[in-house]
Simulated assay, not measured.
Amino acid sequence: MSTTISQNPPLLLSEAEAGELLNVCAKTVYRMRKEGKISFLRLRGVVRYSRDDLLAFIAAESKTVSADDSTTTDNAPRS
């Protein structure tokens, strides 16, 4: 993660910075945007991502994964 994001986080992130925050590549961020999974805004034709929205996305995804994990009580493979 870049030192700019960790020391003085900007409110709006580029695709590459959003990818760093989500721990994915910029192409994945682009795909997630196109699929409607993450919100974005366009300022003078430039796409930006709200840091707060991305953090909320991470929190929501974490809850979904936790809920999915808690419903499995055995180690049997799913079919």
Results as ranks from 00 to 15, higher is better:
34 K>Y: 09
50 S>L: 04
5 I>L: 15
8 N>S: 11
36 G>R: 02
1 M>K: 04
59 A>F: 08
43 L>V: 14
6 S>D: 05
12 L>F: 14
74 D>F: 07
21 L>R: 01
75 N>I: 13
16 A>S: 12
73 T>C: 13
33 R>E: 14
58 I>Y: 00
32 M>D: 03
35 E>H: 12
19 G>N: 05
51 R>K: 04
60 A>V: 12
4 T>I: 13
76 A>M: 09
8 N>P: 03
61 E>W: 08
28 T>L: 10
45 G>A: 01
24 V>I: 14
67 A>P: 02
56 A>K: 13
1 M>N: 02
60 A>H: 06
74 D>N: 14
36 G>T: 05
5 I>F: 13
58 I>C: 03
31 R>W: 06
37 K>E: 15
61 E>K: 11
3 T>P: 00
51 R>M: 04
8 N>F: 12
31 R>G: 03
57 F>P: 07
40 F>W: 09
3 T>G: 02
6 S>A: 08
6 S>E: 12
50 S>W: 07
69 D>P: 00
44 R>M: 02
54 L>R: 00
7 Q>K: 07
19 G>H: 00
22 L>Q: 06
48 R>M: 11
50 S>I: 05
71 T>L: 15
11 L>H: 11
31 R>N: 09
48 R>P: 01
20 E>H: 09
54 L>Q: 01
61 E>V: 01
28 T>I: 05
34 K>A: 13
19 G>L: 03
64 T>G: 05
6 S>K: 13
20 E>I: 03
66 S>F: 05
38 I>W: 03
65 V>D: 02
50 S>E: 06
71 T>F: 10
37 K>A: 05
32 M>N: 08
71 T>I: 15
17 E>T: 03
54 L>S: 01
57 F>L: 04
15 E>Q: 13
1 M>Y: 11
14 S>H: 10
31 R>K: 08
15 E>S: 14
40 F>S: 07
1 M>P: 06
8 N>M: 06
70 S>G: 05
56 A>M: 09
65 V>I: 15
49 Y>T: 02
28 T>Q: 06
42 R>L: 12
17 E>I: 01
21 L>Y: 00
38 I>Y: 00
36 G>I: 01
28 T>Y: 08
44 R>P: 00
76 A>P: 01
59 A>T: 11
34 K>E: 15
26 A>M: 12
30 Y>S: 11
78 R>I: 09
10 P>D: 04
71 T>R: 15
32 M>S: 03
65 V>K: 14
74 D>P: 00
13 L>Q: 09
29 V>W: 01
26 A>K: 12
10 P>S: 13
51 R>I: 01
26 A>G: 00
1 M>V: 02
20 E>M: 09
7 Q>H: 04
15 E>A: 15
35 E>K: 15
18 A>F: 02
20 E>Q: 10
51 R>E: 02
42 R>M: 14
31 R>L: 12
69 D>Y: 07
48 R>F: 14
14 S>I: 04
49 Y>F: 15
3 T>L: 09
